[in-house]
Design a protein around this nucleic acid. Structure first.
Length: 143
DNA sequence: GCCAACGTTGGC
DNA sequence: GCCAACGTTGGC
């Protein structure tokens, strides 16, 4: 089971918006980058992803679950890119900020640090555990 | 097929 | 608001 990180600008689509969608979930559209597209296509139903607020907040605010695997992005006129659906699983009691992640030596290799602009990123098992711990949740409870 | 110019993203 | 990083475009 792989883990992921999805970036969104909260002005456009925030954690609260995601929670408001409930179990119906929400299509994760707008990815226009091939590295991110490959990651989207690797994501399987039931896998978890961190929900990251870029620009405003710059923090991981919760965990979402993939409920529909990659399909053509309806917002892409070229038809080349894909999206998938996610639903909210749980919020982080303590959002984990980019500053905190950068200050944690064990997270120095996180894609969020090394490839700041990649909007869909893989997260390793160890990174998942560390970030969950910093966010105040037991990593096992996110499964 | 190379690479300079340009546009976009996102941290600061 | 600036600008570095990086992806994309288009001329050659």
């Amino acid at each position: 089971m792989a883990q992921w990180l999805l970036k969104t600008e909260p002005d456009t689509f925030s954690w609260d918006d995601q929670v408001a969608r409930g179990g119906r979930g929400e299509p994760w559209t707008g990815v226009r980058n091939h590295a991110a597209k490959r990651n989207l296509q690797s994501m399987k139903i039931g896998e978890r992803a961190f929900f990251y607020h870029s620009v405003h907040g710059k923090e991981i605010v919760g965990v979402v679950e993939v409920i529909r695997e990659a399909y053509p992005d309806p917002t892409d006129p070229s038809g080349k890119f894909v999206c998938l659906d996610v639903k909210a699983v749980m919020p982080f009691p303590e959002p984990v900020t980019l500053v905190e992640i950068k200050a944690e030596p064990r997270l120095a290799d996180m894609a969020l640090v090394k490839y700041a602009r990649l909007s869909v990123q893989p997260v390793t098992d160890e990174e998942w555990r560390i970030v969950c711990g910093m966010g105040g949740v037991d990593a096992a409870s996110t499964r």
